[in-house]
């Protein structure tokens, strides 16, 4: 990317730092906005600010990496400083905490920005910070936003795979997070790989049907943003959703399992709303219903297995 281009990043967590590092590596001038300071970013030569105004000035592309529950507040603050010229792209795995709106819907509702997008996929924060070759999925209905993200993040160490199916990518990112709980659960119970593959394949199918009911394209679930992300999770033992699933399988309650996961998991609050959507839209979703029940502790591993195996 041209050194003259400026990229803003909102969010001082690991993911915000990772996106800032990735953009910095391509030669962009990066401004990271965080309220709590970020010595590692400063050490790498990234400008760190603690207000939105200096972030938005001169940066047409702003990447947002904050938990979904604070997204409305962050979006509202961004709304004070952005106009129609800004591209707003979030990298959050989740949907809004009220209803089932996507987080780009939240950005649209709280700001004047129209050109919005989302990042997803199997890349991890550590991949980006350490500069390991990786793939990230990106979606915007505006091709120029996809191009801006390729320019800002893409390079020999990061392949940006783009689509215009923004709804599909955001739903895939959120629902794969739910399926990774099932992955961790199954592995902790030593379920045979073939059976686990069957379960997850069914899960991806259900996810695609659910998302289609929300206006997504099913095929997006069979790209790097969906099944690709899930395949990567099979080799990523540290994924918090997988740790949560493993803890539940071994008999921990949800609170203990949450602690063992180590990070906030968007899928926990999402699951009941997804199951309600499935009922409303008459989408047959036994895998998602089972994950929801496992989260509440109202089903044993034996009941899960027998329920899914004998399903008609």
């Amino acid at each position: 990317m041209s050194a003259a281009e400026r990229v803003g990043v909102v969010g001082g967590g690991r993911w915000g730092l990772a996106l800032a590092c990735a953009a910095h590596r391509t030669g962009a001038r990066v401004t990271l906005m965080t309220r709590r300071g970020e010595p590692e970013a400063q050490h790498r030569g990234i400008t760190v600010v603690d207000a939105f105004k200096p972030l938005a000035e001169g940066a047409s592309l702003i990447l947002v990496a904050v938990p979904s529950e604070v997204m409305p507040g962050v979006a509202r603050s961004l709304g004070e400083v952005v106009d129609g010229s800004h591209f707003l792209v979030h990298g959050v795995r989740g949907l809004s905490h009220e209803g089932l709106h996507t987080l780009t819907d939240v950005l649209r509702a709280e700001t004047a920005a129209r050109r919005v997008g989302a990042l997803a996929g199997p890349v991890t924060a550590d991949d980006l910070i350490d500069g390991r070759p990786a793939v990230i999925a990106m979606a915007s209905r505006y091709p120029e936003v996809n191009e801006a993200v390729i320019a800002a993040l893409g390079g020999p160490l990061l392949r940006v795979s783009t689509t215009q199916d923004l709804t599909g990518l955001e739903w895939a990112s959120a629902l794969v997070g739910c399926l990774v709980i099932a992955l961790g659960y199954g592995r902790a119970l030593n379920i045979a790989p073939g059976l686990l593959a069957g379960l997850l394949t069914r899960g991806i199918h259900e996810a695609s049907q659910l998302a289609a009911a929300a206006g997504a394209e099913e095929k997006t679930f069979y790209t790097i943003a969906g099944i690709g992300d899930l395949m990567a999770a099979m080799g990523q033992d540290h994924r918090p959703e997988a740790r949560l699933g493993a803890a539940l399988a071994l008999g921990d309650g949800l609170d203990v399992a949450r602690q063992k996961a180590g990070q906030r998991i968007e899928a926990i609050t999402l699951m009941p709303r997804v199951v309600a959507l499935a009922k409303r839209e008459r989408v047959e979703a036994p895998v998602f219903e089972t994950i929801a029940r496992a989260l509440t502790g109202s089903i044993t591993p034996q009941e899960i297995l027998s329920g899914l195996m004998t399903r008609r």
Binding site: R76, G79, E80, D83, G84, S85, R108, A109, E110, T111, A112, R114, E144
Partner: peptide
Amino acid sequence: DPRGREVDPRSYVTRRGQPVHD
């Protein structure tokens, strides 16, 4: 905008200060 803040419509079609067709 949705919160009642004034927004300049030119900002939606301007690139590096110039209005452009896309």
